[in-house]
Design a protein around this nucleic acid. Structure first.
Lengths: 255, 255
DNA sequence: ATAAACCATTACCTTAGGTCAAGGTCAAGC
DNA sequence: GCTTGACCTTGACCTAAGGTAATGGTTTAT
């Protein structure tokens, strides 16, 4: 069970084409397919779609939305809060434009010329881009390394569904390996653990941004200081985040 | 003396590319060019740009905006009134979406599942298309013949700047001819006048929609009953509208 | 069993511009 | 008079987010 494309489309008020397109670009991949290849969406997929639509409503490009939703730092509550705020701003913008239309009308009927500059007060499209920038800033602040973030953005923007699948698979494999070693109580300086760390670093370098050991060190720190990352890793095994960080820091000292 | 493309762009907050594009598609042709070919916009052009931006803000396709602004029925006051109204509706829509985001957040934090249908209440994009439809309806009502209107739409949508220039030129020529005959007190059933009417009918058929004599008859009636059309024709010579209609009605009886 | 409704993929098309590239024009300073 | 930099031109190519077919498989209701 779950929803068919048509059901989701009806529910959310989007077209079938849209859903297929989102699948194709890997933005919203239905969680299963029937034997015949029919798409089946889970409730979680539907919730994700809502998130997508909120971002879309704020004119985020789909590639950026994909980026955001694929980031482990993503937090739905944060996003909803920010979205509510910006949607409110957008409402204000339209109210202002409505006012402008009315004012123009008044001036027209009164026969007095309007200052040409005032005639476009409120149209300024820049305001809209600001929304994206603000969100980006918030994320950047957490990631710290602006350069790396940019590079990551430009690389990941053109990833296809297959790319994301591949990336996810590799990351999951690494995580599983790490998790296995952790559960087996292998110490963090063991070569097998260090090998996983090295693989991770290379993987990040290849797929996201140039990642020298120091950068990995920063990341590792974040795994224990940022509760979202901690939660993400500890979901697999309690204490995994800190174990991973220990391994990373050791890796860094050995360069 | 007029604005350069850069000045207009700054004023209105649009890009240079946008202005050039609008020129190319004949949506906003600057009223002069310098000898070197530089675009010079008049104050009237700037006002037209404001109109364009209001329509654009409501997601009217540019082709439709062109259609609307090229229609003699177009009235800036009417348009502004309608725009203010719909912009207000848009503001309301965003407020609703903001509410939805907040509600979703509350439910998320409260831990209670939200009805999937409610999760998309307010996104419905259909509402937006309604705006266009409403405007279209108003125009349709005046034009009466839905079939003809549709055909006209589909034909004129792909007209380029050159097409519009050609059309305008021919129409102006016809109008001048008619005006000359009217001023020379040539009666409306004179073959020379009837020839102009026939040319007009053929021209409409060729460039807008299939226009048999009866359809032309309707048009002629509108020229005297709709004050905007009357005003448009009487601008060239007082009484021209009714003279034109007389000529058309005579043409229709003779088939 | 067969029609109607639903699903799949592939392929081509559209809108409203963004982004170069290559070159003409104009006012300012030397 | 010459150059430099800011501003203008056209042209060509590119993109995002789907729309619209065309063609064919699947499910369900009668």
């Amino acid at each position: 069970m779950g929803y068919t494309v048509n059901q989701v489309a009806q529910l959310a008020g989007v077209t079938l084409r849209t859903l297929r397109y989102y699948d194709k670009i890997g933005l919203l991949t239905p969680h299963t397919r029937t034997e015949a290849g029919y798409r089946i969406y889970s409730p979680a997929d539907v919730e994700k779609l809502q998130q997508i639509l909120f971002f879309r409503e704020l004119d985020f490009p789909l590639a950026r939305i994909n980026e955001i939703l694929n980031n482990p730092l993503f937090d739905r509550r944060d996003a909803l809060k920010m979205q509510a705020e910006h949607l409110e701003k957008r409402a204000a913008r339209y109210r202002k434009l409505s006012q402008l239309a009315r004012e123009t009308l008044r001036n027209l009927e009164g026969g007095n010329k309007m200052d040409k500059k005032d005639m476009f007060e409120g149209f300024d499209y820049d305001q809209m881009l600001e929304e994206q920038k603000q969100y980006e800033d918030e994320v950047k602040e957490r990631w710290g390394n602006t350069e790396a973030y940019k590079e990551s953005m430009s690389k990941t923007a053109r990833y296809t569904k297959e790319d994301w699948e591949r990336i996810n698979e590799v990351q999951m494999q690494n995580l599983k390996d790490l998790c296995g070693l952790y559960n087996a109580k292998v110490p963090h300086d063991d070569p097998r653990v260090q090998e996983v760390v090295d693989r991770s670093r290379k993987f990040i370098s290849d797929n996201f941004y140039e990642c020298p050991p120091e950068a990995l060190g920063c990341l590792g720190q974040m795994y224990v200081t940022d509760e979202r990352f901690t939660a993400y890793y500890d979901k697999f095994a309690p204490g995994l985040a800190s174990y991973y960080n220990d391994a990373i820091q050791y890796y860094c000292t050995k360069k």
